[in-house]
Design a protein around this nucleic acid. Structure first.
Lengths: 337, 337
DNA sequence: CGCCGATATGTCAAGCGGTGTCATATTGAT
DNA sequence: ATCAATATGACACCGCTTGACATATCGGCG
């Protein structure tokens, strides 16, 4: 029932040369409308699908791009994949999603394998692979186009899409300051992730502008996951002068802060304000829902894919973020010093 | 710098015939250990990667398998992808993750495109694509091996891996009954998802066994997402005789129940017990952490992949579930009727 | 000791399903 | 009539596998 039909079958069916079918397939000029129609009809009739393998072998583009990622939060990856996939789907491009381990010394070779074996036309790098030296170097050596989503370093070297993490953190911090908070805790993200530094920078900038002294004790290391949020929150709330608000630099850690507060019977937001970052569905799923920064992850991914497919010069695109007010932040109570 | 080396280069470098290299590559018998070593050394030295395209084209296996999925929760997909990927990685197989829309009338054609274009050797179907007729039919027609993860129908027809959803729901319901609860609310999952019915069945069976009458009012429709959990919980708690425990058939909906409880100042678990299902990270992220059923998603995916790659006869494998006790369930308070 | 089958390797040619190059045919405009 | 633009075809080739066949080595076995 299912002998796959080849370009030759189509040619025969349409009464033209194989080459002509190929021309139609690739949208070449110099094919009469009439012929084109007949060929297309034949393709439809035979349910013809060009073999990617054959195409690649004969030196043409593969019409495939790869998304390389390392384990971030499920939410993040879900959105990133979705963005890339939507764009690819629209353009009839196949997407290969390829996880790697940025700490694996062999990661460069893995990428080389991916590229040489699959002949992808281009690559999308998502954080934190965006700043993985071995991968960057290999890609450069392989001379294959790629776009980075939210890169942390060497911004100018390659095409990229990103949001203004520093400004977003600044916005959120300012939001907390405006609510009357002065002792604002901050939970950093994973070191691998460059945006972590940017967010910290924005936090400090907002503090400075408001004339609030920076206190290192109020900043704790986190790793972007729930458990590290819990640990950091405990440390912060154990301080002799605990913060009245905690800004976790992503939602997962924000959820960790909420858990600690619940555990200690500290009411959020009346006794402690909590802010997250990313606007993942998690921020709406916890209680109280987190005030957070909307990071347009799917849109970033989609834009990156678009830039990659369009090709051309190095392009940079900044997408806007947005502060989402929910119930986890409230004005500082007067009775709390 | 990066002229890709071919099988001929390797042959020359190792001082053997191309055919011999091919033999090594494909693990044929009748190659001496000595020769094999030399060839492998040459491959390493030249950083040779066989072109998948050329391989496919000449009729060999592609060493690629595809995972077809439709948008489930990010957690679910994350785990499923991880399971498949880990197994593939170990075996040196490439994994193509391919989202589809099960409600798209064209879904069969999409799958055909995937198969004929990429020449994958086999396919893994994750819920709810496992029960998508057009896809099943197409795969059958294409005569390509596939394995289903947690299929709902026609269990016997194809290889599959699954857990005992009915028994798991039975276990949880019994757990609640043992805690003294008699009015136990149940929130169903999405209709597309066959496991929904199984879980409801288990719930009823446990009730029956305990001699507790089934009350249709205590069962509400949900769609496996947070918002539907919220809606269902509101309905249940608005009942003149509200349940003292609510069993949501996944964690997201369980989180919805918690949110409603928080909102209404109903203490969990002292005033209301809540149970989830799946043991996603979400269940540990909310407050209080959810008592839930551990569904071994990554393990299911990994096993499915293993079965697919090993080939052979139709195989079925049931993986064990586990009831995870956390803080959201407590014995019924005596003062609550 | 010669012969045979098992083991090990090589040569060669034919594809797999497309695309590139170059040649050729047709057309319309000058 | 001539030339460039337009339209189509013939054919080699991409990198690898495979099958048919040809050798060559080696360890028994009769």
């Amino acid at each position: 029932m299912s002998e796959r039909s080849t370009i030759r079958d189509v040619a025969a069916h349409a009464g033209v040369a194989v080459k002509t079918v190929s021309r139609v397939l690739n949208g070449h000029p110099y094919v009469s409308a009439d012929t084109r129609d007949r060929v297309e009809a034949a393709m439809k009739a035979l349910d013809f699908r060009p073999s990617v393998a054959a195409r690649i072998l004969s030196g043409a583009k593969s019409n495939q791009v790869a998304l390389i990622y390392d384990n971030h939060s499920p939410y993040y990856m879900f959105q990133i994949q979705k963005g890339c996939w939507d764009e690819c789907h629209e353009r009839g491009i196949r997407l290969l999603a390829q996880p790697v381990d940025v700490d694996d010394p062999d990661v460069g070779e893995q990428v080389r394998g991916l590229v040489t074996e699959t002949h992808v036309d281009g690559i999308i790098l998502s954080s934190p692979v965006t700043d993985c030296e071995p991968v960057l170097k290999m890609l450069d050596q392989l001379d294959i186009p790629f776009v980075r989503i939210s890169p942390g370093t060497n911004h100018a070297l390659t095409s990229s899409v990103f949001m203004d993490d520093a400004q977003a953190a600044d916005d959120m911090t300012t939001h907390l300051i405006n609510a009357g908070h002065r002792r604002i805790g901050f939970i950093k993200g994973h070191k691998n992730h460059m945006a972590s530094e940017d967010r910290l920078f924005g936090y400090r900038r907002a503090l400075d502008r408001a004339g609030i002294g920076f206190e290192p004790r109020l900043v704790r290391e986190g790793e972007f996951d729930f458990d590290s949020g819990v640990r950091a929150a405990r440390q912060l709330l154990d301080l002799p002068q605990p913060p009245t608000a905690i800004f976790a630099s992503n939602d997962d850690m924000g959820a960790g802060v909420l858990a600690v507060a619940h555990d200690r019977d500290i009411d959020v937001p009346s006794e402690l304000s909590v802010a997250g970052f990313d606007d993942t569905t998690l921020s709406r799923t916890v209680w109280p829902p987190l005030t957070t920064i909307h990071q347009p992850m799917a849109e970033l991914a989609r834009t990156a894919t678009e830039i990659l497919i369009n090709g051309g010069d190095i392009t940079h695109r900044r997408l806007p973020h947005q502060l989402i007010e929910r119930a986890s932040v409230a004005p500082l109570r007067r009775d709390i010093p």
